[in-house]
Structure formats: C-alpha cells, structure tokens
Simulated assay, not measured.
Amino acid sequence: MVLMLNDYGAMPVIQTFFAEPTIYQSFDLDAAVTVVDAKHARQHLDETHEAQEQVAFADLLLLNKVDLVSPQEIGILKRRLRAMNPHAKIYSTQKSKIDVEKILDVRAFDIEKKLEIDPEFLKEEAHEHDDSVSSIVLRETRPLALDKVDDWVFHWLSEKGTDVFRYKGILYIQGMKQRMV
C-alpha cells in the first residue's frame, strides 16, 4: 500500500493503519509519499506544523511544480527538505508525473525510523490538528459541465492558490459514462 498523505498530516493516517489489527495484518505499508509544492513550499513550511510533519514522516518526497521556480530555489528547497528528513528520497516532478515504479513496491516504510523521529507517534493523543488547516467539500448529484468545473477551479486557484495544499474529487461529468477523478 502506498500512503498518499493529505493536508491533515502523516501521523493520523499512519496511526489509523496501525490501530486496526485487521488492516495491519492484511496489508504491508509500502511508503508514505508526500507531494511538496515547490512554488509555495517555503511559505507552507514556515507557517504550518502540518507541512513540516508531512515532510518529516515521508519516505518519498515528490518535489512538484519544479518548472515554476528557478534552479537556485529548487536547490535551496532540496537542502531544506534533506535537513528535515535525511532518509526520504526526493524526486523532482512537473504535474506530479513520475514513473510508477519509483513510488510503488519500494518497501520504504520503516516503523522503527518513524519511532526514532517521534517515539509517541503511534499514540492517538500524540497528534493535535493544526487549526490553520481546513477542508471544504462540494457535493452535487446532477452531472456537471466540464468547462464550468474547469473555470471554477481556475478562478478558485487564482484567488486561493497559495493557501491550497491539495484538491481532489470524483466528478460526474455530462456526457461521460464513467466518473472522472
């Protein structure tokens, strides 16, 4: 199982995996993967503990949007990420494109290393959610017009882009038989 971390940080997701014996005994946790937005990483790392936690607990770091920053900025960011997590592999990406072999079946997760970082991290009370991080959920049962969704996302990101850690969705688009992810 590859663990793609969300904007709530690594600890709660990993804790859930180890808290349920059925899950722990049925699956091997392969790697904790964190996508780092190269354009906004400095701001996120400076301002939120959640971003720092994701980097510290990751096995693999995908340094994304490297095409939007200078090579000097990438070098500075890579040194900062390496200082925060000397064990993680760092891959530079654009639009998060990467050969799947680099992130699947890599056997990078090591519970002992995680416990070295934070001996208390498997305990539920060890993690407090950062109140500066929030989520929104939009639900619609009718099929959506893809052009309108694209316009809305573009304008939302134009206005709030530096504050967005990630966005995802499963969309019911007019004229498409299957849902779009």
Rank of each mutant, 00 (worst) to 15 (best):
V33W: 04
V33H: 02
T34S: 10
V35A: 11
V35K: 06
D37K: 04
D37Q: 06
A38D: 02
A38Y: 01
K39A: 10
K39S: 05
R42D: 14
R42V: 07
D46F: 02
D46Q: 13
E47S: 13
A51M: 14
Q52I: 01
Q52G: 08
Q52W: 00
V55H: 00
A56N: 00
A56M: 09
A58T: 10
A58W: 01
D59W: 01
L60M: 06
L62S: 02
N64H: 03
V69N: 06
Q72R: 12
E73K: 11
I74R: 04
G75P: 07
L77S: 05
L77E: 05
L77R: 05
K78A: 02
R79I: 06
L81Y: 02
R82N: 11
M84D: 07
P86Q: 14
A88H: 03
A88L: 08
K89T: 13
Y91C: 01
T93I: 08
Q94S: 15
K95E: 15
K95M: 15
D99S: 14
V100G: 03
V100M: 15
K102Y: 11
K102W: 06
K102E: 12
I103N: 06
V106S: 02
I111Y: 07
I111C: 13
K113R: 15
E116W: 09
I117K: 13
I117C: 07
I117P: 03
D118L: 03
D118Y: 09
P119G: 11
P119I: 01
P119T: 07
P119C: 04
P119L: 02
F121M: 15
L122T: 09
K123D: 11
E124P: 00
E125R: 09
H129K: 03
